[in-house]
């Protein structure tokens, strides 16, 4: 199996704060890769670096074997990396369907003049995008919310629609930033099932951040544990639960 993403000695500084300290790891194709760690450990910074929103201060990140230090976020997205955000970043004034259609943006191919006239090509491309979106809506079982404005939808559904928007990109890698945060057991169960489907049925490499340890231990194939910007552990989830450094980071060390 080949590496989809590899971090090589990546550091990230914000002024005096070191968010990431010499992080190196490889994420293999078709893995369900979980990043865990306490608040402020640098988990989201890792996603932002993959995504191109942050540029590492030192070191390099390769996505599909290509160095991304000169790529803009949209170029990385168009290479097949999509993501959801920790605090929902949906377009609130639009319907769920429009949000998902924006996710399908990279599959629609026509220019502004054709948009102005809504030419035949534009019409066909829009129809194609709509089909992609409807597949996603069907996959995530959000048919009834299609025409609802995002503001009017409950939190759990919003999370699911954001997942749908990321899936409409038809990505090769999907980055999920706390998909189960703030959810009750039943909703977490649903999300876990969707993540497994995305991983197994759609064959997408999943990179997951979450605080729900039960879920992470159940579904992840590989775990990286972080604390204060450093990598504490990398390996199988069942080993992470036994690792003393991980336990210390989570529970605190006495003395």
């Amino acid at each position: 199996m080949s590496n989809v993403i590899s971090f090589k000695d990546v550091s990230l500084n914000f002024g005096g704060v070191q968010a990431l300290k010499n992080i190196s790891f490889d994420i293999q194709e078709n893995s369900l890769f979980a990043i865990i760690g306490p608040n402020g450990a640098g988990k989201t910074s890792i996603l932002n670096c993959i995504n191109g929103i942050y540029k590492p201060t030192n070191g390099s990140i390769e996505i599909f074997g290509e160095d991304t230090s000169n790529l803009e976020p949209d170029e990385i997205a168009n290479a097949g990396v999509s993501r959801t955000f920790q605090n929902i970043e949906l377009f609130e004034n639009m319907t769920a369907l429009d949000n998902i259609l924006i996710g399908a943006h990279r599959h629609i191919n026509y220019g502004p003049v054709q948009g102005l006239f809504f030419s035949k090509k534009a019409r066909n491309e829009e129809e194609k995008a709509r089909k992609i979106s409807e597949d996603v809506i069907d996959f995530l079982e959000i048919e009834e919310y299609r025409y609802s404005y995002i503001i009017s939808l409950p939190y759990g559904i919003q999370k699911r629609i954001e997942l749908g928007r990321a899936l409409a990109m038809q990505p090769k890698v999907i980055l999920l930033d706390e998909p189960a945060a703030g959810m009750n057991n039943e909703e977490t169960e649903d999300i876990a099932r969707f993540i497994l489907d995305i991983h197994e049925e759609l064959g997408i490499t999943v990179i997951l951040i979450d605080h729900d340890m039960n879920m992470v231990m159940d579904i992840a194939t590989e775990v990286v544990a972080m604390d204060f910007g450093e990598k504490l552990f990398q390996g199988l989830p069942e080993d992470a639960a036994k690792d003393q450094k991980v336990i210390d980071a989570y529970l605190g060390v006495s003395g």
Partner: peptide, 25 residues
């Protein structure tokens, strides 16, 4: 036509959340 096309949706995306818009390609 613009508002119902990809162009108009991209415009609204940039207006509402430009970082998310960029992350969507």
């Amino acid at each position: 036509n613009l508002t119902r096309s990809k162009i108009g949706r991209a415009f609204s995306a940039i207006r509402d959340r430009d970082i998310a818009a960029e992350a969507l390609g």
